[in-house]
Amino acid sequence: MAMPDGFKRITLHLARSREFPQGSARHGYEIVAPLDAENHLDVDVWRKHREACRVRRFWAGERTELGHLVHRAGGMGGSTWVFDYDAAAGDDDEAGFRLGDHVWVPGEYVSIRDDEGEMHTFRVVTVEDVG
Results as ranks from 00 to 15, higher is better:
residue 8 K to C: 12
residue 15 A to H: 09
residue 15 A to I: 08
residue 17 S to K: 01
residue 17 S to L: 00
residue 19 E to C: 09
residue 28 G to M: 01
residue 29 Y to A: 01
residue 32 V to I: 14
residue 32 V to S: 06
residue 33 A to F: 06
residue 35 L to A: 05
residue 35 L to G: 04
residue 37 A to Q: 11
residue 37 A to M: 06
residue 38 E to K: 12
residue 41 L to A: 07
residue 46 W to I: 10
residue 49 H to L: 03
residue 52 A to W: 04
residue 54 R to Q: 15
residue 54 R to V: 10
residue 54 R to I: 07
residue 57 R to E: 06
residue 58 F to T: 04
residue 58 F to K: 02
residue 58 F to A: 02
residue 60 A to N: 08
residue 61 G to R: 08
residue 61 G to S: 10
residue 63 R to Y: 09
residue 64 T to A: 01
residue 64 T to K: 03
residue 65 E to L: 15
residue 70 V to S: 11
residue 72 R to S: 04
residue 74 G to P: 07
residue 80 T to F: 00
residue 81 W to D: 02
residue 81 W to Y: 05
residue 82 V to M: 02
residue 87 A to M: 15
residue 88 A to G: 03
residue 90 G to W: 05
residue 92 D to S: 12
residue 93 D to H: 13
residue 94 E to A: 15
residue 96 G to N: 03
residue 97 F to P: 00
residue 98 R to F: 06
residue 98 R to A: 14
residue 98 R to L: 14
residue 104 W to E: 04
residue 105 V to C: 03
residue 113 R to I: 15
residue 117 G to N: 10
residue 120 H to G: 02
residue 120 H to L: 14
residue 121 T to S: 03
residue 124 V to W: 02
residue 125 V to R: 13
residue 126 T to V: 02
residue 127 V to P: 05
residue 128 E to V: 13
residue 129 D to G: 07
residue 130 V to G: 00
residue 130 V to R: 05
